Structures are given as C-alpha cells and as structure tokens.
Amino acid sequence: MGKHPHIIKLDRSNGQREIVANHWLRVAEGCDDTIPAHTLLPLKEWLERRDELLGRADVGIWFAPDDEPEALGQDAARLSIIAVDFPAFTDGRGFSIGRLLRERYGFAGELRAVGDVFKDTLLYLRRCGFDAFEIRADKDVEEAAKGLDDFSEFYQGAADQPLPLFRRRGG
C-alpha cells in the first residue's frame, strides 16, 4: 500500500475541493522520543502519550478499523487532524468511525480517509463527514475527485447535510 503524494481536500462550508500536496506522514508504530511535525500516530500510541501531545496541532492520529472512537472521547474536539484507515473496500467500519467522530465527539478538524480509497467511495465518505481523501497510490487523483460529483441531491440526512430532503424543501 503506497502513499499518494496528493490528497483531495474539501471546504465543508462551500463544498469546493482542491488537490493539494500530502504533507502528513502516517506511521505504523511508535516514534522515538521526538515526534516530528506532520505525523499521524496510531490511536494507541497517541493515547499513551496524550499529555505530551494534546496541545500539538502538528501531530494527529489515525484510527485502525478495530479502534473505538470512545477511546479518544472528547479529546477528538481538541485535535486538528484525524485519519481513518480503510484497509480494504469490503471493510466499512471506517464510515461509522468518521460519523461518530463528527456527530458524537465534536471533531471539527480535518477528517481524512486513507488506505483503499478511490473514486467510488468518495461521495459516501463525504456523507459520513470526511473532508480529505488520500487516494490509493495506483489510482489517478484527478479522476478520483470526479466521484464527488456522482449525485447532486440526497434524500437522507447525513453528517454533511443533516436535514433530509423533505425538510430542506419545507414540507
């Protein structure tokens, strides 16, 4: 699984997107004593070093599919970036993690999908609150971004549009 040099980022206030350089490094296991800027740590390591890292906006965390958002709890609202790993297309646990982080734990920073992320998943990820997407290394990031345009309207409410269609239409 390679790292794509660019990510797709959404502005949640207006839905505009751009493709930008990926400056964050996701590490699989612990760092030495000093954690460099723009590092995404595994949830377990971040929890072990919580007191040291909580105030650092240049350090984020990443969730594995079997990590529980409850372990992070209200600290989520104090972080600037959280990534969620999707190791395989058939593993949808990350969708729930993203939604819980946004809706239950008040996370307002960048919520990034990483791993097996490609065009067909982007729109559904956005609906669950994700606003940054690290596309699989073997996929074209420009082509993948078009997946955000697959549908223009939704019946159901979700993290990106809390009101269902009948409420938005006034009926």
Rank of each mutant, 00 (worst) to 15 (best):
P65W: 10
W46K: 05
V117E: 05
G15Y: 03
R127G: 03
E48M: 05
C128D: 08
R12G: 08
A158T: 14
D51L: 13
V114K: 02
R112F: 02
P164Y: 06
Y155K: 10
F89C: 10
P42G: 06
A77D: 00
D120G: 07
L148V: 14
G94W: 00
V141Q: 08
K9R: 15
V141R: 09
D140F: 14
T34R: 11
R49S: 12
C128M: 10
L165A: 06
G147V: 11
E103Y: 14
K44M: 13
L43Y: 04
E110N: 07
A132I: 04
Y105G: 02
G92A: 03
F154E: 15
K146S: 06
D138I: 11
G109T: 01
F130A: 09
A137R: 12
A158D: 15
L79E: 02
L79C: 02
R126A: 10
T39F: 03
S13M: 06
L10S: 05
D58G: 02
A144K: 15
R12L: 11
G106Q: 01
L54H: 08
S13C: 03
F86D: 09
L40H: 02
C31E: 09
P164A: 07
G92Y: 03
R112S: 04
D138L: 12
R93Q: 11
G106C: 05
Q16D: 15
F154L: 14
Q156N: 13
L47G: 00
G30E: 00
E68A: 00
F86H: 10
L125V: 02
A64M: 14
G129Y: 07
R169A: 13
A57P: 04
M1W: 08
E48S: 09
G73K: 01
A108K: 13
G30L: 06
P164G: 10
R93C: 14
G60C: 09
R126T: 06
D131E: 12
K44Q: 15
I135P: 11
Q16A: 15
D160G: 04
F133K: 10
G171C: 13
D116R: 01
F95C: 03
P42R: 05
L43D: 02
G30M: 04
L122A: 07
L79R: 02
R78P: 08
P36A: 10
M1V: 10
A64S: 15
D58E: 01
V27G: 12
F86W: 07
R26Y: 10
W62E: 06
V84T: 01
K119S: 12
R49I: 14
A71I: 00
G106T: 00
Q156A: 14
P5F: 08
T90Q: 06
E29W: 11
D67P: 04
I81K: 00
L101E: 01
F151N: 07
K44Y: 12
G170D: 11
G157M: 02
P164V: 05
R168H: 03
V59Y: 00
P162L: 02
F130Y: 13
E70D: 14
L148K: 03
G170W: 05
S96K: 00
G106R: 03
G171A: 15
G30Q: 00
A76W: 06
E142D: 11
K3V: 15
R167Q: 12
G115I: 07
R78V: 08
F86Q: 10
D85S: 14
V84E: 00
G115N: 09
Q16K: 13
F166M: 04
R127L: 12
F63L: 05
G30T: 04
V117S: 01
E52V: 05
A76C: 06
D149Q: 06
W62D: 07
W24Y: 12
L54S: 04
